[in-house]
């Protein structure tokens, strides 16, 4: 169905993913070997364990312009390092509260358990997340940050102007 309104360039979300080496990264490899096609918006960083994901990584990704962050770890009980995934889960729950306060929608940060055999799940999770984040629209924190920087500069100027007489 041709739709003339949809001519403009569609928003393509940028999603940073942290996949653990043993389960989810292997599953992503399996998705590749099985030639499953999924949305190209997710870029993967390999880490040894989801327990290595520092909340700062997630915040940094948003600050650098990511529209979403996906973390993939082993299923509960299956962690290669016993319980790194539980540690991540705990941190993730806390971080969700922080993100809520910052006004970052819940769907933008997602934690999924994907085992080494679940190539399919890599595909469905990525497609689903890309679709949800696409519907939310761009987050564009860097742009917002530069707006805020501008505002702060203006404010500083004003403050300086007011302060001048006192020093004189």
């Amino acid at each position: 169905m041709p739709n003339p309104e949809k001519k403009e360039k569609k928003f393509e979300p940028k999603i940073v993913a942290f996949f653990c080496n043993w389960c989810t990264y292997t599953a992503a490899d399996l998705a590749g070997v099985s030639r499953l096609k999924y949305a190209p918006n997710v870029r993967v960083i390999r880490i040894m364990c989801s327990g290595r994901v520092d909340p700062q990584f997630i915040l940094q990704a948003f600050a650098s312009g990511a529209d979403g962050v996906l973390i993939g770890g082993c299923h509960p009980g299956d962690c290669h390092y016993s319980e790194g995934n539980y540690k991540m889960l705990r941190r993730f729950r806390l971080l969700q509260r922080v993100l809520k306060v910052l006004g970052i929608a819940e769907e933008r940060c997602r934690l999924e358990w994907i085992s080494a055999s679940e190539g399919d799940k890599v595909k469905t999770v990525i497609n689903d997340m890309v679709e949800k984040v696409r519907n939310l629209g761009p987050l564009s924190i860097p742009a917002k940050m530069s707006d805020i920087d501008e505002e702060i500069k203006e404010l500083e100027k004003e403050i300086n102007r007011e302060e001048v007489p006192q020093h004189a």
């Binding site: 520092d54 990584f57 860097p142």
Partner: peptide, 18 residues
């Protein structure tokens, strides 16, 4: 952590996005 230092991962994140 060797091979996964904070700076390495931060720069990887930055590199993915900018």
């Amino acid at each position: 952590q060797n091979l996964f230092e904070d700076e390495q991962i931060f720069s990887e994140i930055d590199g993915l996005l900018k």
